[in-house]
Design a protein around this nucleic acid. Structure first.
Lengths: 342, 342
DNA sequence: ATGAAAGCGCTAACAT
DNA sequence: ATGTTAGCGCTTTCAT
């Protein structure tokens, strides 16, 4: 079979139009299921398009219609396990709306975020879902200047640009502190990442300290790591912390992965968790379900946040005019097996 | 300050042109660093663009120039940990080429893959990087019909469409079998996912069986799981397998995560790994570095594969005409602590 | 160094 | 139910 387009010129509507003997406009209507087209015509057009192997040019379509079915999703990282989860929920929620997520990764760099945002906005997407409330001035300006829905996700502790869906990390930290104190622990240490740009982790720690302070307690010690496998770092840092400060009876970790590393260390060294020492992380990673003891944690509502954010964008791109909603989810404390029962 | 575009009409080149008193064409040149423009003019244009908050419309630009700086990356999943790694390497490699990856996720469904591919091709990207060699007929046809570089990644066991970068999963399985036999294990079980569409896992198992067969051994038993946390499943399935078949002296897992679950089970039940029972997984996940014993595994070369695929696309989009390369990487066996030394 | 004109491949709006 | 026309906002090409 000789394909007339072996010239390697991408096919256009015109090619389909000629092959089917119908006007370009009608072909366009068929391909988009728009307007009235007779069944006979529809058949012929579809057959021609399929035979030729026509793939519509969305660039031209978007320019003509001023409509782009893309939603920009801007997140700090994909290796964090938190964000793939958010993403897949966004993706699921968008499934039947005709909208498609497009992902941009910033590596926790504000400058990279600005750049990725600029790049994505230049494709005129139908909405932006972006992690966090902290952006460069230029990024804020871009978001304020656009007329598409903007949803900032994960965090509600701060001022949003348009809509906001997330949890209060400050209160999450605070509640964890309260639970730990209620369980009777007093010598409390912290292990977290050395990431100045991870504002949510920072806010959790601030809230945590605040919770301790309410009970008249100060953080006994802290370690910050960067890079490497979180699990391995959790193990190392826990050892370091406990060697330096053998009196500790609790360690709060900035995420479940480091916490799990700590748990492994404690088990390997015969420490009685949760009686001798208690542990807690953050996120509610089901990844860790298989551990011998379930780490105390707090569900970050990642799935729900993704779904809700996608819903907001979808509704507004369908004409909904609501704007500036702030939706706060309530993270649930899971005591697991690493905090002793009061 | 009143912004004239508070009408919420997206700004165009024309607006910048008027604001700076220079023709649209010159503005365009400045914004793309193309052609000769006097420093004075450049300054004025840039200032005007910045003041207005102009964001170029890539849709129009792409239509006019027939050039799109996007690379479609189509992968089965983001929660697998394997793919985020590949992705971030692609992203890094593309960093300075002006190309941008755009991700599509198929959930291991061939139909979804076809649909995602169609969607992405309709944006006329500069290249396609797609996981695996197995596609629907329609998807194959689309890929064959396009004139942009196509790189199929992860797997080399089969026929490629254009370029292929990956490892032989069949040989990976085979080599693992050889190593296990060399270490003296004889009663060998397998635990893996029940995913008919995960062709790479299937090929590994086939190669593994082949390796056993060469030594006159058959798989003693096998379990297949689906859904849920891989770590928890590894624990459960290991228990099931060992209860049913206490004679087993080795379990081969289809990935490191289930393998780690199995390792946790064995340690919790006082089984001596690797003497009483040996374990091995697949992937070389550094995620697991913090475990007390390092699981035997085989590096899947995910990072290198991503980089090379991105290189191929980048080179060809710059005019390189090479085509149809098949690049096979060599996965390295890491004995870790869960295979006894021969 | 700068500008003018044409057109990329579609779709909105208006015929018929 | 189908066709015609006029752009969408840029870049290419050719002038100057």
């Amino acid at each position: 079979m000789t394909r007339p387009h072996d010239l390697r010129r991408p096919l256009t509507l015109r090619d389909v139009s000629e092959a089917s003997g119908v006007s370009e406009m009608t072909v366009s209507r068929v391909l988009r299921n728009r307007g009235d087209v007779s069944d006979a015509t529809r058949e012929r057009v579809l057959k021609a398009a399929k035979t030729l192997g026509y793939v519509p040019n969305k660039i031209a379509g978007a320019l003509a219609s001023q409509r782009v079915n893309l939603v920009a999703v801007i997140i700090p990282s994909l290796s964090n396990l938190v964000f793939p989860k958010v993403l897949s929920n966004i993706s699921d929620e968008l499934e039947d709306t005709g909208l498609q997520p497009v992902v941009g990764v910033t590596n926790y760099s504000p400058e990279k975020e600005e750049q990725v945002l600029y790049e994505m906005l230049s494709w005129r997407p139908s909405g932006v879902i972006i992690a966090g409330l902290e952006h460069t001035d230029a990024a804020r300006a871009m978001l304020l200047n656009t007329d598409i829905p903007v949803v900032e996700i994960m965090d509600v502790d701060g001022e949003g640009i348009d809509s906001v869906v997330g949890i209060s990390h400050r209160r999450a930290g605070l509640h964890m502190a309260e639970a730990i104190i209620a369980a009777g622990y007093r010598q409390i240490g912290f292990i977290g990442t050395k990431m100045p740009e991870d504002h949510r982790a920072r806010k959790r720690l601030e809230g945590f300290k605040e919770g301790l302070a309410k009970a008249g307690i100060a953080l006994a010690d802290a370690e910050f790591y960067s890079g490497g496998s979180a699990l391995a770092k959790g193990r190392e840092m826990t050892e370091a912390l406990l060697k330096r400060n053998p009196n500790l009876d609790f360690i709060y970790y900035s995420n479940d992965m480091v916490g799990a590393g700590g748990l492994l260390y404690c088990r390997d060294h015969g420490l009685d968790v949760p009686n001798q020492i208690g542990l807690a992380g953050f996120n509610g990673l089901d990844l860790l379900d298989g551990f011998s003891q379930r780490l105390a944690t707090m569900d970050a509502c990642r799935g729900k946040i993704g779904r809700k954010a996608a819903q907001i964008v979808a509704e507004r791109s369908q004409g909904g005019q609501a704007t500036g909603e702030v939706i706060e989810m309530e993270p649930v404390l899971q005591l697991g097996d690493t905090i002793r029962k009061p």
